Simulated scan of single mutants.
Amino acid sequence: MSRSLRGFLVAVPGLLLAGFGAVHPARLDAATAPWWTTLHIILLPVFPLLGVAAWSLLASAPPWLRWPGRVAAFGYAAFYGGLDAVAGIAGGTVVHAQHGATPVLGAVFTAGDLVGHIGAACFLVAGVLIAVAAVLRAGWWAVPGGVVLLLASVSFLDSHIFWPRGVVTMLGVAAGMSWLSLAGERSAEDRRTA
């Protein structure tokens, strides 16, 4: 696979999520509930793609970084998918069925927020390990991408994909992952030509 294609592919999940974030309702109420539910059904297979991108970026990492990073990427996919199902699909369904927000929605969001925070924390751990592995492999070439990925991963802890911050966060994830992929490939090419 070409270096630029791999760099693009690891950016695709963040780019998709940024696009969906731009059309994500700012609040859940009776008027937005049908789209809220539908959007989160669409997003159900998209959110785990960030974990797939993280998993692939760890392919060349030393085992002591690769396996904890991949466990964290899996934890992100599992737990953040729970947020999408509970606060997204179930929350939208509850509001639509009850013709507005009720105390039940608070309980649904509390459960969703819990699993979402665990998932986002797992993503941050995976991001740290990806950045460390990239810097070890590519040196200073990886530092800008690592910084962008880490800042975006911290922002993701509480931004979800909501406009505007969540969209910028996902663009940062896409840019950081792409940069780290390209830096790692550049480093491998430099070693082959040396």
Rank of each mutant, 00 (worst) to 15 (best):
Y76N: 01
A77K: 08
A131F: 09
L149Q: 05
P63A: 11
A174I: 13
G75I: 11
C122Q: 12
A120H: 13
V115G: 12
L149A: 09
G106E: 15
T32C: 00
V12A: 05
A59R: 10
F47G: 02
I118H: 08
T110S: 13
V154R: 10
A33R: 01
V128M: 12
P25W: 05
D158G: 13
T37K: 11
R66Q: 07
Q98Y: 05
V147A: 09
V173Y: 07
F123E: 06
S181P: 07
T38S: 13
A90P: 01
S4H: 12
R165L: 13
R70V: 01
W55E: 03
A31M: 02
P34S: 00
E185P: 02
I42K: 12
D84P: 04
A85Q: 06
S4T: 11
H40Q: 13
L57T: 02
G69R: 06
F47D: 03
F109Y: 11
T110D: 15
A53D: 09
C122V: 14
P34A: 03
V94H: 00
A11M: 15
F156T: 01
W64G: 00
A30T: 04
G91M: 00
T169A: 05
P62S: 09
P103Y: 11
W35Y: 10
L58S: 01
A120Q: 15
G75D: 06
A78G: 04
R6C: 01
V125M: 14
S153C: 11
D29E: 10
G69L: 07
F47W: 14
G21L: 08
A18V: 12
E189A: 14
G176F: 12
R27E: 13
G92C: 04
D113Q: 10
A142I: 07
F162S: 01
G176E: 09
L16C: 12
A77R: 06
S2M: 09
W141I: 03
W35F: 14
I118K: 10
S155V: 05
R27Q: 08
